[in-house]
């Protein structure tokens, strides 16, 4: 282990922290120093909590994915809003389990967050042994179609991005 790896175990994370610090405060040399110190200390202290390193293989595709996610969030908001206002008594909520094919921890986290942010679904439990996600759906009609949707729309792109 070289000294740079020991002091900066997560260079991207440290860089992100520094950038965040500078954006939150006005840029000055003092803040640059303070931000750098914080970035190094925080990324070292939190190192034990990090899972094994995830590899983002295609950052461009990740941006595309996030863009599409933003559009889906807008749509899901409208759908949920309409259901709350006009159909709140006819809803048929239910749970279903989603079989995961992703293995990377960070990719699974991304998928679970995506599911929680999009139309009428919240991820409720991650079964590490069985490799399934338990999902609660506000209005569960066609389970198989929903699973197929999540698989092709979110899981496959994530698989590609993280080369999992």
């Amino acid at each position: 282990m070289t000294w740079i790896q020991r002091w900066l175990p997560h260079p991207l994370f440290a860089g992100f922290l520094l950038l965040l610090w500078l954006l939150m405060n006005a840029f000055s040399f003092a803040h640059l120093l303070l931000g750098s110190a914080l970035a190094v200390v925080i990324s070292r202290v939190t190192q034990p909590f990090w899972p094994e390193r995830s590899r983002i293989k295609y950052p461009g595709k990740l941006m595309l994915y996030l863009g599409r996610l933003l559009v889906d969030i807008l749509k899901s908001n409208l759908i949920v809003a309409r259901r709350i206002l006009f159909h709140s008594r006819q809803l048929q909520p239910g749970f279903f389990t989603y079989p995961l094919t992703l293995t990377d921890d960070f990719a699974v986290t991304m998928l679970a967050s995506t599911i929680s942010l999009t139309p009428g679904t919240v991820s409720a439990h991650y079964d590490r042994e069985g490799r399934t996600l338990l999902i609660h759906c506000l209005h569960l009609e066609d389970e198989a179609a929903l699973i197929r949707d999540i698989h092709s729309r979110y899981e496959l792109p994530l698989k590609e991005i993280f080369d999992d």
Partner: peptide
């Protein structure tokens, strides 16, 4: 479902 979507 309310807080995660509509309020976001």
């Amino acid at each position: 479902h309310g807080p995660t979507k509509a309020s976001t």
